[in-house]
Design a protein around this nucleic acid. Structure first.
Lengths: 343, 343
DNA sequence: CTGTTAGCGCCTTCAT
DNA sequence: ATGAAGGCGCTAACAG
């Protein structure tokens, strides 16, 4: 009743042909069912699916890719100092890939390298990638985007500057504005801001939101309350030290990310300034760090995993239908103990 | 002079056949060169390599896998709450994979799930994986390891309990012992320890090292100076609170990882205890967090990326030569400002 | 040391 | 709505 001579059962994994034979159809029909193509009679479909189950059949990815001339593979490119951020986005991309039976390869990259673009191109042709998920700052690397467009390689971006392509982002301007509005509502009139690096979209948006928030609260923008940072802890320390030295220092500091905010708190500790008694501090991103320092940080929750998942789904839309959209994900405020009313 | 009619050059990627034709050899010979097989004459090899360069040829991974009946793919399985750790190990694994022209797939897993083992098996057969890199606590999941052994699926572990198989680890016992020795050298006699979770190898080793360190310093082990933790920040807080309540509380606390050590410092802040003035605190791992709190943490640097890279290299050894070793990587002490001499 | 032959397992094109 | 034939690009097994 079985095909093998049953002497030394070799346990070769079943092939499409085996499924077809068991279902009493041709391999092509079985293939149609598996690929959810139209024009298959309902009972035929069911017989095939039954055979798939019975044999515990799994299509061979290599054979499928070779014949279909597609790799069913996407890569996530990243050049980000924050492991938390990267890991969260990665998990989101992974979710989307799993749901679509795609594979994912992770690629740390140095986007400042002179050979960056050609390295990406090499990666694409080596692995025959079907598409790319780009994360900041790579999502804004114009030379790369141009090449990809020209070569018609589908890609989707996480938090890109341009709102033209496929991808996902959140309204960082509105979020920052809301944060400053909140600080102002606590009575603070001198609100400082530690900026991110100049070449970074997030830095610009958060600065813009800061300015909008001041205006909304009827406060005047004052460039001396600004310090340029790098998104790294140390630059938060340096920025805070600079602001502390002002003759009329700020009573609240909004740092453009949590790491720098932690630096501000660190510097305040060092200088004997009480947080939040004498100084309110807030950040952006809601990283685990924000709950692992004292006092825990008031910040904005950035839904990184959702951004990754949604961006990747838009990539698939672009692969399938030729185009995807830029989807906006919701953020939320996290009010914790690093901020307090002005005494 | 070229093969195309040159009207609308289709730019199909070159195949092995094209390389062979250009080099004036058979496809099989070209294949031999690319796979670094023996028995190819030196000048033939060079002609082939020249053709590969000229055509910018890249082997098609799907075709190669299909014919060779290997995926050239390994998966890294993880079930770890720390994104930092996972990302670092991942980067190491990636390095090794790149160097060996293997692909890597990341797999977050819930190793406590009842279907854990079958999910891994499904993954292996779906993706036709050639091997696995297992990270803690999966590296110690006996039911899984048994199944893999029985199915002859090659795997390598990062920091496994068993020293039998392939993989990489560091001497956590010696490192912990060294840390406690250091605290004792500062004059501390009452040294507390926040343990990791009971089912975790790292927790056991670090506790063992703690005991050894006490003995080496001529101090008596005292179970009331122990608190059970989970490796998470909150449990560090809880453990510290418990130890602070003792009638004779410790003057130094060695936490089994940095997150819990940060919790201890947090709790000390909350209780008005000065670190390191009244209490020395040390951790384990040297995560970024250890430099992002105040005071910066004395800790032990765990070379996570190296562990990932080395483990994966041992996996390849096992895939190729049938066996790999468990390699020990060096650690180092990081003495920072969270520890100070007993006044 | 090198070439020939025959698939790997699936999908595409075309027929029916 | 279903099937037959052919090939995707590469390597294994065998010759020579």
């Amino acid at each position: 009743m079985s095909k093998g001579t049953a002497a030394t059962e070799q346990r070769r994994p079943p092939r499409l042909e085996d499924v077809a034979r068991l279902a009493g159809v041709s391999p092509k029909t079985a293939s149609r069912v598996l690929n959810k193509e139209a024009y298959v009679q309902e009972d035929t479909r069911e017989r095939v699916l039954r055979a798939v189950k019975d044999l515990d059949y799994r299509p061979n990815p290599s054979a499928r890719s070779l014949a279909a001339n597609r790799s069913f593979l996407v890569a996530m490119l990243y050049d980000n100092a924050s492991p938390n951020y990267t890991m969260q986005v990665q998990n989101g991309v992974l979710q989307a890939c799993d749901a679509n039976h795609y594979g994912m390869v992770m690629r740390p990259m140095d986007s400042t390298s002179a050979q960056f673009v050609e390295r990406v191109e090499a990666l694409i042709s080596e692995r025959r990638l079907d598409g790319l998920v780009l994360t900041p700052p790579i999502a804004d690397h114009l030379p790369l985007l141009k090449r990809l467009d020209r070569a018609k390689v589908p890609y989707a971006c996480v938090s890109p500057r341009s709102r033209k392509g496929a991808g996902a982002d959140m309204d960082e301007v509105a979020a920052s504005c809301e944060m400053v509005t909140y600080l102002a509502s606590l009575g603070h009139r001198r609100i400082g801001h530690i900026m991110g690096p100049a070449d970074h979209g997030a830095a610009d948006w958060r600065l813009e939101g800061y300015k909008l928030g001041l205006k909304a609260a009827g406060l005047k923008f004052n460039a001396s309350l600004l310090a340029r940072g790098t998104f790294l802890f140390d630059s938060g320390v340096a920025g805070a030290v600079k602001l502390f030295k002002l003759t009329d220092p700020p009573t609240a500091i909004f740092a453009a990310n949590d790491d720098m905010a932690a630096g501000v708190i660190w510097a305040a500790n060092k200088a004997g300034i009480d947080v939040p008694g004498e100084l309110s501090v807030s950040g952006f991103d809601d990283t685990p760090l924000s709950r692992q320092i004292w006092p825990p940080l008031t910040t904005i929750h950035q839904p990184c995993q959702d951004l990754g998942r949604i961006a990747c789904m838009q990539l698939f839309a672009r692969i399938r239908e030729g185009r995807g959209a830029l989807i906006r994900a919701p953020y939320s405020m996290c009010i914790r103990e690093s901020t307090a009313p002005l005494p």
